[in-house]
C-alpha cells in the first residue's frame, strides 16, 4: 500500500514531463538529446548555485524572513536564468526549430529539477506507513514548476534567439521573465513571512504558473506573427 502511494506520487511528480514530451511534436522530432543536454546544464547550474549559496549566505538560525538574505537568494536564483541562457544559446543542437528548442530545454530543465529535488524525499518519505499530504503537494508543485520553466524558457528564447520582435512587447517580455525568475523567492516569502500553509502556497503556485503560461503563450504567438 505504501509502495502504491509512492508510485502514485511519482506519477504525479514525473508523469507530466513524460506526457508533455510524448504528446507534443517534441517526440516526433526526437529532441531528447536537447533535453538531456539541458538537464546536464541544469546540474552544472545547480552546483554553481550551491557553491554561491554556501559562500554568500549565513545559515539561518530560525525560520524567519531576512530581507537581505532573501535578496541574495534572488540574485543567486538568477544564476538559473544564466544557465537557461547558456542552454538556449550556446548549446549546439541538431537542426531544431526555435519553437521546439525552448520546449525541449524547458522540459529537460524541469525534469532535472524534479529529479534532483523531489525524488530522494519521495523515496524516503512516501514509502513510510504514515500518510501525509506532503508528497501529493510536492507532486503538484512539480507540475507548477514544469509550467513555469517552460514559460521562462519561452520568454528566454524570445529574448535571446528571436531578433525581430515587436518593440512594444520587449519591456513586457523582460518584466515577465523577471517575475518568473523571482517566483521561487516569492513563494518562499509567502511560506515563511506570511506563514501560508502548504495547500495555499501550492494553489498559488499552480494558479500563478497557469497565468504566466498564458501570458507567455500570448507573447510568444504575438512575436510569431509576421510584422
Amino acid at each position: 500500500m505504501t509502495v502504491f502511494h509512492f508510485l502514485n506520487c511519482a506519477f504525479l511528480t514525473f508523469g507530466p514531463h513524460v506526457v508533455y514530451y510524448s504528446a507534443t511534436p517534441l517526440s516526433e522530432y526526437d529532441t531528447i538529446g536537447t533535453s538531456v543536454k539541458a538537464a546536464a546544464v541544469y546540474l552544472g547550474t545547480a552546483l554553481v548555485k550551491l557553491v554561491c549559496l554556501a559562500t554568500l549566505l549565513k545559515v539561518p538560525e530560525n525560520d524567519s524572513f531576512d530581507p537581505y538574505q532573501e535578496l541574495m537568494k534572488v540574485f543567486i536564483g538568477f544564476i538559473d536564468v544564466a544557465g537557461l541562457y547558456f542552454a538556449l544559446t550556446q548549446l549546439t543542437h541538431r537542426n531544431i526549430s526555435q519553437n521546439h528548442k525552448f520546449q525541449a530545454v524547458g522540459l529537460g530543465w524541469a525534469f532535472a529539477d524534479s529529479v534532483l529535488h523531489r525524488l530522494a524525499p519521495l523515496w524516503i518519505g512516501a514509502r513510510g506507513l504514515e500518510f501525509t499530504w506532503e508528497y501529493i503537494f510536492q507532486g503538484l508543485e512539480a507540475n507548477a514548476n514544469l509550467v513555469m520553466t517552460l514559460s521562462l524558457a519561452a520568454l528566454g528564447s524570445l529574448m535571446w534567439l528571436r531578433k525581430n520582435k515587436p518593440r512594444t512587447l520587449i519591456p513586457i517580455i523582460y518584466a515577465c521573465a523577471l517575475l518568473l525568475a523571482t517566483m521561487p523567492s516569492i513563494t518562499s516569502y509567502l511560506r515563511r513571512s506570511l506563514e501560508w500553509q502548504t495547500p495555499k502556497v501550492v494553489g498559488f503556485e499552480l494558479f500563478s504558473s497557469l497565468v504566466m503560461a498564458f501570458i507567455s503563450w500570448q507573447l510568444f504567438s504575438a512575436c510569431q506573427r509576421p510584422m
Binding site: 500500500m1 502504491f4 502511494h5 502514485n8 506519477f11 513510510g128 506507513l129 504514515e130 500518510f131 501525509t132 501529493i136
Partner: peptide, 14 residues
C-alpha cells in the same frame, strides 16, 4: 502510531 491512508484512497488517487 501511524496515520495511514486506506487502499481505497490510493486507488481513488490513482
Amino acid at each position: 502510531v501511524y496515520q495511514v491512508a486506506s487502499v481505497t484512497f490510493d486507488l481513488l488517487f490513482l
